[in-house]
């Protein structure tokens, strides 16, 4: 499809423009807003590449939560970014080097979406053919996530659970301290 390719190119061009503008703009509120646009563009690209689950996460985290968190941080700091005092040569070299290495790595990647890519030939056929007998869940993705990679998923859930408990502990401690300081003031 020529048109889907055109959509890809248009989205990537808008992404590049937004990224360059993010570097230039010193008004942090504008930076937060353009960051939201950048996330939406990324989510659109993920969707075009057939990864709706990643696109949902990008939209929820990048557009929703990250904007709220960044605005929350803005209430604590100044609204204008100060010009950097350091030399820009070293960061530029690091970024160019990383970009060159990533481009070099991409040269070896098999073409997108081909049927004979390594990822399609390793364990995927077995999952597709045998999971009906071995697991017996209609949705293959669910079978892979919850059974074949069950321990992996359990570990991920444990990490998120621990992080949630940590955040709750930090927040509850802050509330008690604030209440305590108000009592001291009175």
């Amino acid at each position: 499809m020529i048109l889907t390719e055109f959509v890809d190119i248009a989205l990537l061009a808008l992404l590049a423009i937004t990224g360059l503008a993010l570097l230039k703009i010193r008004d942090l509120v504008a930076v937060v807003m353009l960051g939201g646009i950048y996330s939406l563009l990324c989510a659109g690209l993920f969707l075009v590449m057939d990864a709706p689950d990643v696109a949902i996460t990008e939209a929820a985290v990048g557009v929703g939560i990250a904007t709220v968190l960044l605005v929350g941080a803005l209430t604590l700091i100044e609204r204008e970014e100060r010009p950097s005092q350091h030399s820009r040569a070293l960061p530029l070299v690091v970024v160019l080097f990383t970009g060159a290495m990533l481009t070099y790595g991409i040269l070896d990647v098999p073409p997108f979406g081909e049927a004979d890519n390594p990822v399609q030939e390793h364990v995927t056929p077995r999952y597709l053919e045998e999971q009906e007998e071995e697991i017996g869940v209609e949705n293959v993705v669910t079978a892979v996530l919850a059974s074949y990679r069950g321990y992996d998923t359990l570990g991920e859930t444990t990490v998120i659970f621990a992080a949630g408990i940590g955040v709750l502990l930090l927040l509850s401690g802050r509330k008690e301290r604030r209440a305590g300081s108000e009592e001291d003031a009175s």
């Binding site: 949902i56 557009v63 709220v68």
Partner: peptide, 22 residues
Amino acid sequence: LYALLSFIGTVALLKYVSYGDL
């Protein structure tokens, strides 16, 4: 889902702009 999500950031930003606080 996007339609449900996209207003959250807008609300937070407007709240910051008009109240200076979330």
